[in-house]
Design a binder for these strands. Structure first.
Length: 997
DNA sequence: TTGTCTTCCCTTTTT
DNA sequence: GGGAAGACAA
């Protein structure tokens, strides 16, 4: 192997090595020599490989130095992986490259040179919760009601400004020229809007600056500012980073785009003349209306730095966060002499999966046509499943996973569940726990958002940066020191009037008007305790874990939690011990560790950082959102919740742009799968504690029928094979058409109050089963439902022969899933991180929640009764109620309330065995009965062939509407109707209480 | 001032 | 259903 080490520690690879195994396009992308390169990398086209090889190419073929490389990724995990790959390619010298996220890179630059924009190097980074807290304070100080003017909304407007590099002065000038920030004023009379936002932006920014703090968006914006106002710093970085690489370029926002531009020097070098003039104009046009700041006036060097960006416009899924897809679409206009190389050959998925992906994405208008292809064969068909409800969906998935592992040779780690929103994870967690399937949940409630962890971190932030008012006020009375609202307000007011920080005010309590000794004493004690902590931290700066331990002890946080008896508080103690472990790990992995560095690493973690690194053992099924899944791949992927309103999300459905993004998200999801893809949906979904009828996602319609093998095509309601059918659940529908009691009986796809469906029905018949009788009603219903799905244990499934599982499907299922009894789980904490794990040591575990790490090893021990308190609310389903002998039986699901009107009736638990039998319709305790649409689904007499676009209809609930599209799917035909102010609804024709006019 | 009860929103997606 | 902020009483 020809290794040439002209620079110590850099392994110089030969051209042959670096091009080995690449296809012509990849090879071209690696070698292309020029100032600007866009690699259009379709999903699974080997872009990371190309990117790392290109970096190695720069080092070995162009004699670049590692320190001249800046490679930007979107997540820490991606950065870490790229660094690892580079290290294997070029050796330890890879450590000298900057391979990091935008945010980390900016922190690094600001710590070094932030003085130019007024940032002391110990600045703190506010997360969203901190920002909301600050905004709420500001609002209250200005006579605004945080309920009326939602801090989150204001902050999102501010975030938009920052992403477009609009400073507060600019906003103020435009929308509230008379407003004087920093002075007491009442904004209570202002309506939410640009003017108010501008005022609050100014106040917010003023407070951030006083607190020597930044929020996430500031990291980018202020770095750009710094490069623009500090010629020395700009020159330094422009000279340093000769080669800039940006991954996931389609997800950059305007600020990030300008940052790249600033660093490249494309606007400031002689190389930018000529063609660059045009490009500059294009750039400016692109930024039209955003008025970003003046660019640095002087060229610093002869040539712009070389920029390589990689991305796929079809995978742009962060527009909601300000990502501007035009950055990638206009790259060739923005950067002079840019070259584009497209990678379309896919090395990941089967042709079937790619066909589905292509079919879905091709419906997006205005995209550059692109078609993924593979040399792999067609592979297995996509498997579809339509469950009756979300519970059954999760159970079916659990069963199928058990089968995949038992029969098809997959491991749990091969499998991922992807959903649109985090809230969907719970059902799957429950089903997996019950089935003994080890899983790992990515995202959701984050470790660092837990109260006790945030409190502790606030202490640390105050120690490094006592000006941080938000954190200081947060911990003033944590643990309780008898310092309430009043004391805090006195100090805060004083600080405000004196123009000093909260911390400084604490040093002058005797000056504060209205101060009583009862308040002054604990205030003094607090201040001197903090001084001690600061002194301690100064001595032990390189050992954050010691500082954490010391803070937890000295502050009394730990003691307060330990005193509390209940389990929840104990879990919190464990979270804090994990925080300590995270600090210890940071310390070990970071040569120049410091408290500030630790805080920074904590502030910038992302959900995806919880994912195990490559090569790490992945022994569990992964659950995550589609967003988090970007960049990952799994042999088996379950795309769940494929329903209108769930995915696409209801909030996106009336907006063309957002729908396009949803579609890209679907594309991302589909292309994560390598060998097997599943798509599942539920006919009814419980959301906000209420059930809603769901229609199939339009993305399912977009996938050609021949690609999907439906294990179950319709829900029992849709197919009319509901087990309740024979009872004539539709007696209740006698009143159909005339009766308003069927409110919501429209199968409409989504949107708040207009949703409804079978529950409206049930409710009508039962006097409000879904909401009326509260807990017991719900328990009963879920019990009944669980019963339906699982029937009973082991040998007695209780399924009727027409139950729509294939025999294959549940033979394995039952065996693998329902062995043990689980009633000893006493969980009360639901989804919390209960921290029962002490798996702190290994890399990658540091950011992982305890729950996920401990699942990894749990294996099949779930389902047995010894799993401690990992319970979740779901076990409540097995809770005794109404004196029945529940719980003596098996898993939480197996038990059931008794009574439903349907043929399935219920299982009653007897002698630890669940039996299925038919029972009279009255459910004990609830008075509820259940009914569901049966085969005798009522007809409104409408046939799809009678309806045409433009026809007027009258709907019982929505009133007059006009048909804007019809979809003939036989019994399941759907019409889309515009009801004016009630919005556009997709209605299942045969269900809609509607007539043609 | 603290603890408990009530109400409100919540659910997009995240660096 | 559930967490968190606000309202209210001890």
């Amino acid at each position: 192997m020809p290794i040439d080490t002209t620079e110590p520690a850099v392994i110089r690879r030969s051209a042959e090595e670096l091009l080995d195994g690449l296809n012509p396009q990849q090879s071209e992308a690696v070698q292309y020599s020029g100032p600007a390169l866009l690699i259009g990398a379709g999903a699974g086209s080997g872009k990371t490989r190309v990117l790392t090889r290109r970096i190695a190419w720069a080092l070995s073929q162009w004699n670049a130095w590692p320190s001249q490389i800046l490679a930007i990724t979107f997540t820490n995990k991606a950065a870490r992986e790229m660094k690892d790959r580079l290290e294997t390619l070029i050796g330890p010298a890879a450590q000298r490259m900057w391979v990091s996220t935008f945010h980390s890179a900016c922190v690094r630059m600001l710590r070094r040179d932030g003085e130019a924009v007024g940032l002391n190097r110990s600045f703190t980074i506010y997360d969203q919760a901190d920002s909301i807290r600050l905004m709420r304070t500001i609002e209250q100080e200005h006579g605004l009601d945080p309920k009326r003017v939602k801090p989150r909304d204001v902050l999102s407007a501010i975030s938009d400004c920052k992403n477009e590099l609009k400073g507060w002065r600019m906003q103020l000038k435009e929308y509230a020229p008379d407003y004087k920030p920093g002075q007491p004023s009442n904004l209570g009379h202002l309506e939410p809007g640009d003017m108010l936002n501008a005022c609050l932006y100014a106040e917010y920014q003023r407070r951030l600056e006083a607190a020597n703090s930044v929020d996430f968006d500031d990291l980018i914006m202020r770095t750009v500012q710094m490069l623009q106002v500090d010629p020395q710093a700009a020159a330094y970085y422009r000279h340093k980073f000769r080669y800039i690489f940006v991954d996931e370029y389609q997800d950059t926002n305007h600020a990030q785009y300008v940052l790249v531009r600033e660093l490249s020097g494309v606007d400031t070098t002689s190389g930018a003349s000529g063609v660059a003039g045009a490009a500059g104009a294009a750039g400016a046009a692109h930024a039209a209306g955003t008025q970003y700041m003046q660019l640095s006036p002087q060229p610093q060097q002869a040539q712009p730095n070389w920029v390589t960006v990689v991305g796929d416009s079809d995978q742009s899924i962060y527009a909601f966060r300000g990502a501007d897809i035009h950055n990638i679409l206009d790259f060739e206009k923005d950067f002079p002499n840019a070259k584009t190389v497209m990678l379309e050959q896919n090395y990941r998925s089967t042709q079937t999966i790619l066909d589905a992906a292509n079919a879905v994405i091709s419906k997006n208008a205005g995209r550059t046509p692109k078609k993924l292809w593979t040399q792999e064969g067609a592979g297995s068909p996509i498997v579809g499943y339509a469950a009756d409800d979300d519970l059954q969906e999760a159970q079916w998935v659990a069963g199928e996973i058990a089968r995949l592992v038992a029969e098809d040779g997959f491991t749990y780690g091969d499998i991922a569940i992807m959903y649109r929103a985090n809230a969907q994870s719970r059902r799957f967690e429950e089903a997996f726990i019950n089935a003994g399937i080890p899983y790992q949940l990515i995202g959701g409630t984050r470790f660092y958002e837990r109260k006790e962890v945030k409190d502790s971190i606030a202490y640390l932030q105050c120690i490094t940066n006592p000006s941080d008012d938000v954190s200081m006020r947060r911990i003033l009375n944590v643990p309780k020191r008898g310092l309430g609202e009043r004391a805090e307000a006195l100090v805060a007011d004083y600080a405000q009037t004196q123009g000093i920080t909260f911390w400084q005010a604490l040093g002058n309590t005797e000056q504060i008007p209205g101060m009583t000794t009862r308040m002054a004493n604990p205030l003094h004690a607090f201040r001197s305790m903090m001084e001690d902590l600061i002194a301690y931290a100064a001595e032990h700066d390189a050992n954050p874990s010691d500082i954490v331990a010391h803070v937890l002890q000295t502050s009394g946080i730990i003691d307060e939690l330990r005193k509390a008896k209940d389990e929840q508080e104990q879990g919190r103690v464990e979270n804090l011990s994990q925080l300590q472990s995270v600090a210890a790990e940071y310390e070990q992995n970071t040569p120049d560790s410091s408290l500030a560095g630790f805080l920074e690493s904590v502030a910038l973690v992302a959900d995806s950082d919880q994912l195990p690194d490559e090569g790490e053992q992945r022994g569990s099924v992964t659950l995550m959102t589609l967003h988090t899944s970007k960049g990952l791949e799994y042999p088996v992927v379950f795309l769940v919740g494929m329903e209108e309103g769930t995915f696409p999300h209801s909030r996106a459905m009336d907006n063309v742009t957002e729908m396009a993004e949803e579609r890209r998200l679907a594309y991302v999801g589909i292309t994560r799968a390598r060998k097997r893809l599943y798509v599942t949906r539920a006919g009814e979904r419980t959301q906000w504690g209420k059930a809603e009828t769901m229609l199939p996602s339009e993305f399912l319609d977009d996938i050609p029928d021949k690609l999907i093998d439906w294990k179950r095509k319709e829900t029992s309601v849709e197919s009319g094979e509901s087990e309740f059918g024979e009872f004539g659940g539709f007696q209740g529908f006698g009143g159909f058409g005339g009766s308003r009691s069927f409110d919501g009986f429209d199968g409409s796809s989504s949107r708040g109050a207009s949703r409804g469906g079978s529950h409206g029905r049930w409710g009508a018949r039962s006097g409000g089963a879904s909401t009326g009788s509260g807990g017991s009603s719900r328990n009963w219903r879920d019990g009944a439902r669980g019963e339906r799905a699982f029937g009973a244990s082991g040998d007695d499934y209780g399924f009727d022969s027409d139950y729509p599982f294939d025999d294959d499907d549940y033979s394995t299922f039952g065996a693998a899933s329902f062995g043990g009894s689980s009633d000893s789980r006493s969980g009360s904490r639901g989804r919390s991180y209960d921290g029962s794990s002490n798996d702190f040591g290994s890399r990658g575990s540091s950011y992982r929640s305890s729950r996920s790490s401990s699942y990894g090893s749990a294996g099949s021990s779930y389902g047995s009764g010894d799993s401690g308190r990992r319970g979740s609310s779901h076990f409540r389903y097995g809770t005794p109620q109404e004196g029945s002998s529940y719980r003596s039986g098996r898993s939480g699901y197996g038990n059931s309330g008794s009574g439903s009107s349907g043929s399935y009736g219920s299982g009653c638990t007897r002698n630890g065995k669940v039996t299925t039998r038919r029972v009279p319709r009255q459910a004990p305790g609830t008075g509820s009965t259940a009914a569901s649409s049966g085969s005798s689904a009522p007809r409104n007499g409408l046939s799809i062939s009678d309806l045409h676009v433009g026809d007027l209809v009258s709907h019982d609930k929505f009133g007059l509407g006009k048909i804007i599209s019809t979809e003939d799917k036989g019994d399941n035909s759907v019409v889309t109707v515009d009801f004016g102010s009630d919005g556009i609804k997709r209605l299942m024709l045969r269900m809609a209480p509607m007539e043609k006019l």
